[in-house]
Design a protein around this nucleic acid. Sequence first.
DNA 1: TTGTAAGCGTTATCAT
DNA 2: ATGATAACGCTTACAA
Lengths: 330, 330
Amino acid sequence: MSITVNQIAEKCGVSRTTVLRALNNQGSVGKNTREKILSVAKEFNYRPNLLARSLNHGRTMSLGVVTINVENMYFVQSLNIINREAEKRGYFTNIVVCDESLEGERKLIQGLAERQMEGILISPINKGKEFEEFLLSLHIPIVCIGNHVSDSITTVQVNEMKAAIDAVDLIASKGYRKIVFICPPLAVQKQQNIYAHEQRLLGFGAAVQKYSHITSQIIGDQEYLRKIETILHENPEKKTAFLCSGDSYALNIMRWGEQEGLSIPGDFGLMGFDNINILDYISPKLTTVSTNLEGVATTAVTELLQQIDTKDYSPKSIYLNHAVLDRNTL
Amino acid sequence: MSITVNQIAEKCGVSRTTVLRALNNQGSVGKNTREKILSVAKEFNYRPNLLARSLNHGRTMSLGVVTINVENMYFVQSLNIINREAEKRGYFTNIVVCDESLEGERKLIQGLAERQMEGILISPINKGKEFEEFLLSLHIPIVCIGNHVSDSITTVQVNEMKAAIDAVDLIASKGYRKIVFICPPLAVQKQQNIYAHEQRLLGFGAAVQKYSHITSQIIGDQEYLRKIETILHENPEKKTAFLCSGDSYALNIMRWGEQEGLSIPGDFGLMGFDNINILDYISPKLTTVSTNLEGVATTAVTELLQQIDTKDYSPKSIYLNHAVLDRNTL
DNA sequence: TTGTAAGCGTTATCAT
DNA sequence: ATGATAACGCTTACAA
């Protein structure tokens, strides 16, 4: 605990108002008193208690950011951007990690609200009516990044469905005759928010219909490597590509392919989603879709700060553009 | 803003003391009053203001963690661990990002202290007497992870010097005749805390002396790729290995080698430091040194929490064991 | 130039 | 079973 204004006042034999005036350089203070106050403050390392300050003027100048899991890589890239943007505007950014727990995410959001964060950014793993109501009940500006909870909550995202359609079009244009979509287990949909993946899946379904000569398949479970193996064995002649709803699936497939002595795109085509930053280190260069995380993050903070400023929390849906990155695995 | 205890009291026509008793389920409250209070609280989404609560009993149950840059990968791996460990003990973890700015780091630490964090974890990029005094002046438990500031500040780390010696020994045992150490620009040492790298460099120097048949060289600037090229051209017959003080240098060298059509370890040996988690996705498997981040992080939180509990902030230096990971690039 | 008093929302102590 | 009061550290009128 550092010294308080009251203690300084006592030590200097003046009132705390005077101390405040000296410390904050406002109002007028006698030269001697000012000097004495400042010297005592320095000597005892006076440091304002921001809890007290915030408590009385009702502002903390702090934002909360809930992140799933820092090893996840996806959302992590946004954190620097969010932080930089918030700092420019004088806000302090508090990041908390929910470690993939649905319950944990709720508790953290609650905790941030109780700590009087002025706004919260999330890429939520919770979903559903109850969660929506929970968020709304906080009466704090909240912006969702990537994952959509409800139209009553502001969301910044890319059009994932359209992105998936573009991805399929690219694959089709390269002459593939079979496209397999790899995504998270569909069973978790009931509890967990995988909106982005769902949208991509929808896009995939819509897109493959356009190509009557292309067969399609969906793999939605953890055993995808084994299934891929089967597929490649059963249709050795058919030019097959795997479209992954997430680069990390693609990376695992690359690693597996390497072990099996398969070449990409020689033996099969591969495409990811998200353009996570570790792709820079990986070869061959993965063909993927950039979901414009930088743009999404920047827009999300800007929107959040604007809601705080204007006190207008009316929900918006903001869509940014994605980009198909045609690299070396198709 | 949610409803406050006072407002509930007013609405229910009772005193705030009674409201508190009802909300916290302690003391005795009449059945009717209790029900009324609880229903009003629920209706208006009562949420305790933790700023006020903390102000009152002087505890925030929050820890601050300062991270350099989430793209950096090195420290990021610890964040989940820190968070998990702190949560077990009932603490809330606030992560802030300093974005590689020396000034930023100081400001953030200050900000965390002003927000009454009960303890702070840092892998500091600042160094020197002044910074040390700054940290000490906060009178808050602080634990440094990896980078050392001064013996007056508790630090949890591995013996980097010994680790570097072990690395050199491994390289020597594989028959290399020239070892080149790649590290950050030495010019930044004056301002920036690169203690771990300095220690590794010292270890490197000490180790190569033991081998009279091995020549050594140190590259401490950004142009290392060009210099490596020159070295390989000039001594084509000499078996050369590059020991990098950080896996990301090694990854860049791998990428470059690939572009140049060089094979590892065929054309040169390569070894990194830290065992960052993206190595899992990279092939060939990089030979490196694990600096036991998990252990360091766990120990750091535990130590921090202990200091908070016991109110004994006396500085310690805690060393954990490293492990040389002999994989496929030597 | 300096001080007094009330208030932010919560809690703890001591009454009734 | 309920309430009054002071306190945490800071801010902001409003005096003097």
